[in-house]
């Protein structure tokens, strides 16, 4: 059967310890400039002492199905490729920053070379049949990457069997970064 791929990342918040290996693996793989990161760790503490609950999340670009950055881009630099991955074509980017303002997740930044940069879901690795750098290094098996439209995939089965959420669903962007809770 020929169906369209939808790449998603699934983050198991019950397993994440916030070790930041994903952050460093990304920096090493994608050579992100000093002081900038394409993925990061957020830790939420809920409740009132002593009844506290923590959630640790590895966050990055949500590669939204309905991506406002792609719509806001005046030159076509922000675009979608196979599997719904959102990429920035450096050669087309003017550094106008409309995409940064349009992103509800603040996942983008201006690279010191002038163009706008962000997580690529390691498209260069995925094209070679590999998984992303952050998923590959995760020591607690918190991170999973794959095609949600393939019912046999690990991510599809996790989403079918586990309770999950996305961040700010109210934006209507249909983000593709899922958090198991």
């Amino acid at each position: 059967m020929n169906r369209e791929k939808r790449y998603v990342m699934v983050v198991d918040t019950r397993l994440c310890v916030g070790c930041k290996a994903c952050v460093l693996a990304c920096k090493a793989e994608n050579n992100t400039p000093d002081g900038f990161c394409r993925d990061w760790i957020v830790e939420d503490i809920w409740g009132l002492f002593p009844n506290l609950r923590a959630e640790i999340r590895s966050e990055r670009c949500n590669h939204c199905s309905n991506a406002p950055c792609v719509d806001a881009c005046p030159t076509g630099a922000s675009h979608k490729v196979d599997g719904g991955i959102v990429l920035v074509d450096h050669d087309l980017c003017t550094g106008c920053k409309a995409c940064i303002a349009s992103c509800p997740y603040d996942a983008r930044y201006v690279h010191p070379d002038g163009y706008v940069d962000k997580c690529t879901f390691c498209a260069h690795r995925v094209a070679d049949g590999k998984t992303t750098a952050c998923v590959a290094i995760c020591p607690t098996k918190t991170l999973h990457f794959g095609d949600a439209n393939d019912p046999q995939s690990e991510v599809a089965q996790l989403l079918a069997s586990r309770r999950h959420k996305v961040l700010h669903p109210e934006t209507g962007c249909e983000p593709n970064l899922y958090f198991l809770t």
């Binding site: 002081g35 957020v42 939420d44």
Partner: peptide, 21 residues
């Protein structure tokens, strides 16, 4: 439960702590 505290490791210039592009 209410959100008591949020910490992040992200410190991208012009994005954090508040967007100013």
């Amino acid at each position: 439960p209410t959100l008591l505290e949020q910490t992040t490791t992200r410190v991208n210039a012009e994005i954090d702590p508040a967007l100013h592009i």
